[in-house]
Amino acid sequence: MHKLGRGHRDKLQQFITITGASEKLALQALKASDWHLEGAFDFFYSQPQLKTFTDSRHLEELYNRYKDAYVDMILADGITLLCNDIQVDPQDIVMLVLSWHMKAGTMCEFSKKEFIEGLQSLGIDSLEKFREKIPYMRSELKDEQKFREIYNFAFGWAKEKGQKSLALDTAIGMWQLLFAEKQWPLVDHWCQFLQARHNKAISRDTWSQLLEFAKTVGSNLSDYDAEGAWPYLIDEFVEYLNENGIIQNDLINDSSLKR
């Protein structure tokens, strides 16, 4: 029993809410970071996950619950049922995080290997544990490094089998989903630009470099280098923004916010 001040207790509760960690782990992380929340997050995510023992028999039962009747895989119907059981919308981004843990090769499919090994890595062997883990998986999107991994994983996961590029509509949907988690002021302009000017599939290189662009170039684009190594499409986007006077508006917005 620790007697905590109100401030510390509030932080502890906040940390638990965001990460889904146990009180013990939360307390450990906060103490290690001298009760700074941001530092605590870093500490928590940098720790190697202790592999919790999982019951193989229970995992088999879970798999069999959701697997397709004719194919030794979990398909769309099985995933829908799973989402229902863990009370998550199938469109929820947390399903992307789950797929990332499972190393799923493609959207709406989990092989047996993917499913079982993924759940093992998460320490899940029951629906109760699954539900408990949802907040943790959601919080992983806030970690910079993990977000990047999940973002780049999403490309292969969302594209059609056998294709090299990602269909434009799918890409736009994914971007809207992902950038809801990590604010990028230009995401709507980017999607409009693609539909107006590009109207073709998205290459992996463009996909991964867009995240770098969103991270490294200010929203007023003053530090953008058109002769740098940015993909051609991003060059076009910057040109589009300048042509349409969008940057000027953003500049005004920025200065308004500063006042």
Binding site: K164, S165, S203, R204, D205, T206, S208, Q209, E212, G228, A229, P231, Y232, D235
Partner: peptide, 24 residues
């Protein structure tokens, strides 16, 4: 711009890749 387009195409066709640590 034409050169940049070709570089991207060669990346897509797996002749080139970006360095993991330095995208330039």
């Amino acid at each position: 711009k034409a050169i940049k387009k070709r570089i991207e195409d060669l990346i897509t066709r797996d002749y080139l890749e970006r360095d993991k640590d330095n995208p330039n």
